[in-house]
Design a protein around this nucleic acid. Structure first.
Lengths: 342, 342
DNA sequence: CTGTTAGCGCTTTCAC
DNA sequence: GTGAAAGCGCTAACAG
């Protein structure tokens, strides 16, 4: 199907020099005479020469490509992180290949296999809500390919992680709710296997404890991040003998869906029920009342993760350390919690 | 930095067979004895063998990779299209590499060069609002690499395009507004160089004409898709001696921003001013009142574009035809236009 | 069915 | 400075 491509051999022949010299001229090797270099560059331009990264990568055993695997693309969080990551990677002449696992463990495994086959030099990954087995990632470790986790991390693997201060942020959320007079604060908690779920839950718990409020287990609803499940969860909460007066949801899509359900029941937000989310998604400022939430430094997360990865690529795998980089997320107060309960 | 990788040579040696046979066994070539195949597969598994796509691609002069270039990642439209595209591509064993040009022509050019260097077998692209020169894409054509445009297309290149019926959709929008008694319908029009802008503008014009309404040029505001510019545009419209009673914006982010501006001026939507967008972004159903808009079949756009591309890859470039595939988009009526003017 | 032999396009010693 | 030669890991005729 393809036409003939201009290669360095074509250029070498036409200029009556060796392909080694052409290669050197093209890659900016110092030991090439200015004259030769210019001739090569000119002819390359003229013949529409495009370098073949597959060949270069194969010859150098390095692909200059970084794989990014995210669980989803639907909320603005991951695309924003990717923007930051891509930006920094590009500035260091790395390409980025992105794939989304659609919250499916199997797809995640398949995606990482493709990345491996394509010889990525490093992997940035945020796992799916289903991922409990990490064999597919251990292969990278065995091969000496660096991995950096971000957002959805696990401590089952000894690799660097880039996260936000979920615990403190959740703590701040709950404390804010308490300050507005709320006493029965419910929490839609994420899957156990995700560390963000645990950290946010702990922040929630500890804030209650600090203010001598009971941690009522019936107010902590396990939720699997499937939007359809929000409605029954909310209905269960509202059906309690002593229903909650505030709701802290694990993320914004959930909080937003919860607001829609709550409003459809004729309850007022925030008077009857305050609602808070997490992430500051695009929709948080659009819905009415505006959703109080935690703003995450998305671009910075992407940039930092790439930075850590690039740094790892410069040293021997033996020297890698499994530190955790914690970025700062902060509370954004909006209408959904802007009511002081008498 | 990297450890030694198991290669087919390692397997061949260990099994005392030739690497060709290993290759055949691994790729499922029919002419391999069941015994040999099994032995190879077992050892491959045992030795943690991962095939090297770079080498395969180089040897076969085919990368099994499709490049997708989109102008942005911030709205839900492009991510959704990519989900559809990736899904179909994966089912045909193609990987997809994505890059976003951030509405910058230069970035777009750089991104396509990277795709070229990485030997993509085909390119799916939605151009930036700045793109007027197409030399970077003509290189693909010269090399016999198929291109398919989607959403943001141009007729300056003879390639297949996948779009929605923008004209009819815009026509439907305006007709809907007219049916609700609106007579001064403004339009925030997109950049001239994008065909979607022209088609939507034409649909707008023709709907007015059909209903014997004047096409008032002062109500057609040129707008460059930069959200910051929405406010002055709206202020200009509201400052007119005869201000509009409805607004049709080129896309949802614009319409949403316009709603915020309009509301901040104390005007009521839809009573004082109806607003309609285009794309049915995530935010359209969240803002209040809900934004009337055009729903685009995002996944289908992605799938169709990949389908067309894959089909092209099966035939000689000489046989490629530059048809346009038009998918159906439809009006979704919500609160922002739900008021019959007396 | 299997082995041999050329490459794919480029980098990289090692000489000169 | 430049060339020759080997090799990155795999595929694909061509023999047998």
């Amino acid at each position: 199907m393809k036409q003939h491509q201009t290669t360095i051999i074509d250029i070498a022949k036409e200029l009556n020099i060796s392909k080694s010299t052409v290669s050197r001229a093209l890659t900016g090797h110092p030991k090439v005479s200015a004259k030769t270099r210019e001739a090569v560059l000119n002819l390359a331009e003229k013949r529409d020469y495009q370098r073949n990264m597959l060949a270069i990568s194969l010859a150098r055993s390095k692909s200059f490509t970084i794989g990014i695997v995210v669980p989803e693309f639907r909320t603005s969080f991951f695309p924003e992180v990717i923007i930051g990551a891509q930006e920094l990677a590009a500035s260091k002449n790395y390409s980025v290949v992105i794939s989304q696992s659609n919250e499916s463990y199997e797809t995640e495994v398949a995606n990482t296999k493709v990345m491996l086959a394509n010889q990525v030099d490093g992997l940035l990954i945020s796992i799916t809500k289903e991922t409990r087995n990490f064999d597919h990632l251990k292969i990278f470790q065995r091969k000496g390919i660096p991995i950096v986790f971000f957002n959805r991390v696990t401590y089952e693997l000894q690799v660097p992680k880039v996260v936000v201060n979920d615990y403190e942020a959740a703590f701040a959320v709950v404390e804010h709710l308490i300050h507005t007079g709320r006493k029965r604060i419910a929490h839609l908690a994420g899957p156990d296997c995700l560390l963000i779920s645990k950290n946010r839950l702990n922040g929630y718990r500890d804030a209650l404890l600090k203010h001598q409020l009971p941690v009522a287990e019936e107010l902590i609803i396990p939720y699997d991040l499937t939007i359809d499940k929000v409605k029954p969860c909310i209905e269960a909460l509202l059906g309690l003998p002593e229903p909650p007066d505030a709701l802290f949801a694990i993320n914004d899509p959930t909080a937003i869906e919860a607001m829609l359900v709550i409003k459809s029941k004729g309850l007022r937000i925030p008077q009857d029920l305050s609602v808070v989310g997490f992430s500051n998604d695009l929709g948080a400022s659009l819905i009415e009342p505006g959703l109080t939430t935690i703003d995450q430094p998305t671009h910075e997360i992407g940039r930092s993760a790439i930075k850590v990865l690039l740094d790892m690529m410069e040293v021997e795998p033996e020297k890698w350390k499994a530190f955790t980089m914690v970025l700062n997320a902060e509370l954004i107060k909006r209408g959904s919690s802007d009511y002081r309960k008498p």
